[in-house]
Structure formats: C-alpha cells, structure tokens
Amino acid sequence: MMEYRWSDLYIGLRHEFDATFSAEHATAFAALSGDINPLHVDKAYAIGAGFPGPILFGMLTSSLYSRLVGVYLPGKFALLQGIRIDFSSPCYVSDHLLVVGEVVFLSEAYQRLEIKATIRKDDGKLVSKALIKAGFHGN
C-alpha cells in the first residue's frame, strides 16, 4: 500500500494494477447490492440478449477505482470524495483488466487531488473511465 502525503504528489503521478473477477465475485456482488438483473446473473438470458455471457456489473468493476484510490493514489491516507464514471464496453468473468490512474489536478487549499483513471481489457478496449476526486484523512 502506498502512503503518499500531499507534498509527495505531482501532476502525472501514475499507478496501475491488474485484476480479474470470478463468477463467485459476481454472485457475491448481486447478493450485496441486491441487483439481481438477469443480464448479470442469468447466463441463458444474457446469451439471449446477444452477449457471450453474463455481463459483469459496472459497479463491481468500478470497485477497482476504490482500490486505486485507497491503495495506490494516494493510498493509506486517502479519503474518496467523488467519482464520475462513464462505461464504454461490457466485460465478463475472467477478463484480465488493467486499471491505470494518473493525477491530473491538484488544489492546495484543501489538499484535493483529481485522478483520471481507466479500466481496459487486454486488447486495449476501454471498459470504463473515471474522474476521481480525493483528499486526505487525519493521521
């Protein structure tokens, strides 16, 4: 886990990591969120709708933005303050996802940083992009 403080940050500071979700993750997310839409949990339904299988929940894959902020940018002392996400294409169980985040804006007064982040598949296809607002908590 990174432990960046305000004075460590600069425009262009960047981190990346990869992740893969399993069918069990999707099942757990459906139970946690209560989102039981068949496009995400019913293989036959998803195939019937023209997809190769159940689509991973956008908010499940977007949980990787939480990891980006809480573990990498800025890491331990983070306080997530806002996020805007645009979804571009579906992804599926076992897809290899690459998460990249880069600091694009710093506001000294209240120690606010903004991060542009993306989640892409191995072929480079964009799954989603996000603009994340974060600050720091005490300690």
Binding site: S107, Y110, R112
Partner: peptide
C-alpha cells in the same frame, strides 16, 4: 464542507 471544496476547485479551474 465537501461542497465547499468542490466549489473552490471548480472556481480554480
């Protein structure tokens, strides 16, 4: 307080 931070950064931009 959080809205205030959003206002300030929006004005800075």
């Amino acid at each position: 307080s959080l809205a205030h931070i959003n206002l300030v950064t929006s004005i800075e931009k």
